[in-house]
């Protein structure tokens, strides 16, 4: 029987990549300390700054919000209702329940009132649904944080998310994307600071924290994520991790340490202001305004 390295009680958890046995109480402490260390390592934010946490109702965002509050940070939540039927209804309820339980502020935004729901937008965009959804979410998260006066936008991206993206970008040596893959993107013209405090926390560690801390999160997957390439990449990396624990952490951490410094000259690439809404954009018209244009021309035809 493995024993907790901190207190000697029966260990419930063994972290293969860290070779660490912990009881539930000391696991929660370990997790919170690791997030705190990551925040400090990358100078993400201070206790004096207002943080907006992007909340989906899932394990990562709710574990992040819970941890930030426990660590004494000023963190409010922001939920975007994507209009994905029953899935959005359930996830919104989970986010609301969490905010109520801990008496926290949760801002919500209804995408169907701002532009259109994700299922409706799908008809106007040829990208995979997850890419479309991601770009629309990033637009509104940044815009909302700016409008409400938050200095920092925190997302629940974890080590598995980051290593899967790194893997995908390395497969095609997508230098522009690799250049932006850092756990802190500083505030810039039109952008609030974006941070990923769970970047060194694996997906399983995040779920363990949620379960052990008694967080009620949505376990079912978004119906549009089925077959997403990101999941496939995660499964490939998981096979490597099974054979050689610590591979994902090494892959990501060593990228940040060795390769990123060579790429970082221009973290956000060459951006301009969207001609219509003024938000940062690669093209003269941003993704969201382009979608809005397609929607309005479609309505005119009807």
């Amino acid at each position: 029987m493995r024993k907790c390295v901190r207190c000697g009680k029966k260990a419930q958890i063994y972290l293969y990549s860290h070779r660490l046995s912990l009881c539930s109480e000391h696991y929660l402490e370990w997790f919170e300390n690791r997030v705190e260390r990551t925040i400090k390592e990358f100078n993400m934010f201070t206790k004096e700054e207002k943080i907006l946490v992007a909340v989906s109702g899932g394990k990562d965002s709710l574990s992040l919000w819970h941890t930030l509050i426990k660590l004494g940070y000023q963190a409010d939540g922001f939920y975007i209702n994507l209009g994905i039927g029953d899935y959005s209804q359930k996830s919104l309820q989970k986010a609301k329940n969490f905010a109520d339980k801990y008496q926290l502020t949760l801002h919500t935004l209804d995408l169907s009132k701002e532009i259109a729901s994700i299922p409706d937008l799908k008809a106007y965009d040829s990208r995979p649904t997850c890419s479309l959804c991601g770009s629309v979410k990033r637009y509104y998260m940044n815009k909302y944080a700016k409008e409400k006066g938050y200095a920092v936008l925190a997302t629940g991206h974890n080590l598995d998310d980051e290593s899967a993206v790194l893997f995908a970008n390395a497969l095609s040596w997508n230098v522009e994307y690799l250049r932006r893959q850092y756990p802190v993107l500083p505030e810039d013209d039109g952008f609030v600071r974006k941070v990923k405090p769970l970047c060194k926390i694996s997906e399983k560690e995040s779920a363990l924290y949620a379960v052990l801390a008694g967080i009620d999160y949505i376990e079912e997957e978004c119906p549009f994520s089925e077959g997403a390439t990101s999941i496939e990449y995660k499964l490939y990396l998981s096979q490597l991790e099974d054979k050689s624990p610590g591979t994902k952490l090494r892959f990501y951490s060593e990228f940040l340490r060795k390769l990123y410094p060579l790429l970082k000259e221009s973290p956000r690439g060459n951006l301009q202001k969207c001609e219509v809404c003024g938000e940062p954009s690669i093209n003269s018209l941003c993704n969201v305004c382009r979608l809005k244009l397609k929607l309005s021309s479609h309505k005119e035809k009807i």
């Binding site: 394990k59 959804c133 991601g134 978004c222 499964l235």
Partner: peptide, 10 residues
Amino acid sequence: VVNAISGGTL
């Protein structure tokens, strides 16, 4: 049984 893997937007 908890399956922590999730996908979609990264």
